[in-house]
Design a protein around this nucleic acid. Sequence first.
DNA 1: AGGGATCCTGACGGGACCTTGACGTCGCTG
DNA 2: CAGCGACGTCAAGGTCCCGTCAGGATCCCT
Lengths: 224, 224
Amino acid sequence: MSRVLVVDDDRHLLRALRITLAAAGHEVVTAPDGTTALREAASAHPDVIVLDLGLPDMDGTEVLAGLRPWFAGPVLVLSARAGSNDKIQALDAGADDYVTKPFDMAELLARLRAALRRRVSEGSDPVVVTEHFTVDLAARQVLADGGPVRLTPTEWALLAELVHNTGRLVSQRQLLQSVWGPAYERETNYLRVYLAQLRRKLEPDPSHPRYLHTEPGAGYRFTP
Amino acid sequence: MSRVLVVDDDRHLLRALRITLAAAGHEVVTAPDGTTALREAASAHPDVIVLDLGLPDMDGTEVLAGLRPWFAGPVLVLSARAGSNDKIQALDAGADDYVTKPFDMAELLARLRAALRRRVSEGSDPVVVTEHFTVDLAARQVLADGGPVRLTPTEWALLAELVHNTGRLVSQRQLLQSVWGPAYERETNYLRVYLAQLRRKLEPDPSHPRYLHTEPGAGYRFTP
DNA sequence: AGGGATCCTGACGGGACCTTGACGTCGCTG
DNA sequence: CAGCGACGTCAAGGTCCCGTCAGGATCCCT
């Protein structure tokens, strides 16, 4: 159904959440601390994040701050602190919801459903068609004249980010953040290498791109 | 800032909410019962709805059910009932958040901000159109008669700063500062060079500018 | 354990971009 | 009318960025 990243240092709670969420049809990824959370968020591409504020290595709001510049999906915060100030601080730091421990598992699921519902209703065309190929974001597949095109996971992540912003310029930073994670903002090499591979697989004339355009010094743009 | 429809039958609470929300910069519309709420929601086009479940004429979930088929914005439910089943029912009926009475006013405001933040990020592109070209600030693109116009990063930064203050005079200092940084306030050469390039790319007759006007000794002005 | 696919890394040539300075023109002022 | 300042234009140099390629490391499946 959708991928959920659960961040909590309580092993028992983590286990309970994993079981409950899996039973509800979600794919579950877990992280026991903030550092792991940021890494998993970048690599696993979750649809939604459940974040406990009380983590061993860093404050939960710091994780939020590290997440928000590039993670657009909903973040649901868990916390043992019931004070209004804690709630306000977390919500203004970018949280979409705030649930106080101890909480009712069924209520948490309902709040997750509410958060995910918005994402679905926002979802624009999951399919983009050009003269030479078709990109199906939902099915994670690219079809060309001669049948399906084989894309590696990295190639796909890059293409998906570009297609998701069809017509708009996507900055190098945004691409690097969403595909490789926030720590790779400077590795513009990666973009050059993988854009070349995508062009070789998709463009009719890879040396004169028609769909995957370069904007020197800025980023890349997909235009159908 | 944004328009809020508040639905509650408690006059005192309604009054308190009206004052608090107005102080936070919102425009406030109120409704004392479900029938009025549905009418106001249709006529006033609110950005967000705060809905009490305990209404005199109909159940709150019925109001939600009447709202959801056509109202896409966030709905924040208030209720005196703290049971999990009530929450789950409301959330699955289409509510985006559920706050139990009595609640902290500051927390409600924070939850409203969180709900509205999502809407802003979806915001449509600010586009400036002239007779000869179109500037799309969100997509970072300029379209002319013959297709897209290639702009270098510096050219774009300069144009964006001018377009962002359409019709207003932008001082040389402000332009230099926002494009090149505070250390370049004296380098008015740069402006002359890059304004010339922009005119060559955008103006129908570059030697007689129609959109990018020079104000001698002061700065430049973009007029559509 | 072996093979293949995928990913990372560094180097290099070519081209685009930014900077800089010189020169001509226009308008204002003494 | 002469002088001055501000603006527009142009070209050249140097820097930075991009596309390309290949080698090596890593991971996964057999």
